[in-house]
Simulated scan of single mutants.
Amino acid sequence: MRTTLASAVLMVLALDSMAQGASTAQVEVRFEHPEKFRDASLDNRAYPRSADPQVLKVLTLHLQKLGQRYLRPGQQLVIDIRDIDLAGQFEPWHSQAYDVRFMREVTWPSIDLDYTLQQPGQPALKAQEHLSDKMYLSRPGRLGNNDRLYAEKAMLGDWFRQRFAQPPS
């Protein structure tokens, strides 16, 4: 009898959590022809030059985390990333720093994307965006941060807040 009651309670809790999960905000990130991205690799030795799967994974997880924070339950956001140009660039002529990405004022990050926001009872909102952060070297918190995608994450965070965060009521 106790086993049956415990099983029933667990089943109810599982169904309740699934029902709540169905109404939570979701972000789906897709990459259109990542093999053609301008610069989406943290490895200078990758040849032919192609998008680093780890970079794509980290950016996807970051956007999903932003969605959990800023989207309302029931909203669905699909982001199609068309191009990535990471902050900085490799300068292979530096023989002692072949794998170092040099950050300069003219090597800011940029991402081209399309997005579709769907929400209950409203028509889908579709837009194209070109994100860039020419002031990425001046961002607070940049110094001492070891995250190699700090500039891109900060740029995406700013964009996400501007587009999708709800104004305080």
Rank of each mutant, 00 (worst) to 15 (best):
M1W: 10
M1L: 03
R2P: 06
R2A: 07
R2M: 00
T4W: 01
A8L: 08
V9N: 12
L10S: 10
V12A: 10
A14K: 03
A14W: 15
L15E: 12
D16V: 04
A19Y: 05
A22W: 04
T24F: 10
A25D: 10
Q26K: 15
Q26Y: 06
Q26G: 11
E28T: 13
V29E: 02
E32V: 11
H33P: 00
H33V: 02
E35C: 02
K36C: 11
F37N: 05
A40D: 02
L42N: 03
D43R: 15
R45L: 14
A51C: 08
A51T: 13
P53H: 13
Q54K: 11
V55F: 02
V55H: 01
L56R: 07
L59E: 02
T60N: 02
H62V: 08
L63E: 04
K65F: 06
K65P: 00
G67T: 10
G67K: 05
R69Y: 12
Y70H: 15
Y70G: 00
L71W: 07
G74C: 14
G74L: 14
Q75G: 06
D80H: 09
R82I: 09
A87D: 10
E91D: 04
P92E: 05
W93G: 03
V100L: 13
M103W: 04
D112V: 05
L113E: 14
L113R: 09
Y115N: 02
Q119T: 15
Q122R: 14
A124W: 12
A124T: 15
A127R: 14
A127M: 14
E129Q: 15
H130A: 09
L131F: 10
L131S: 04
D133E: 09
D133S: 09
K134C: 01
G141Q: 06
R142I: 01
L143Y: 09
L143K: 11
L143N: 08
L143C: 01
N146I: 03
N146C: 01
N146L: 12
D147Q: 04
A154R: 08
L156Y: 11
Q162C: 08
A165W: 08
P168T: 11
S169W: 11
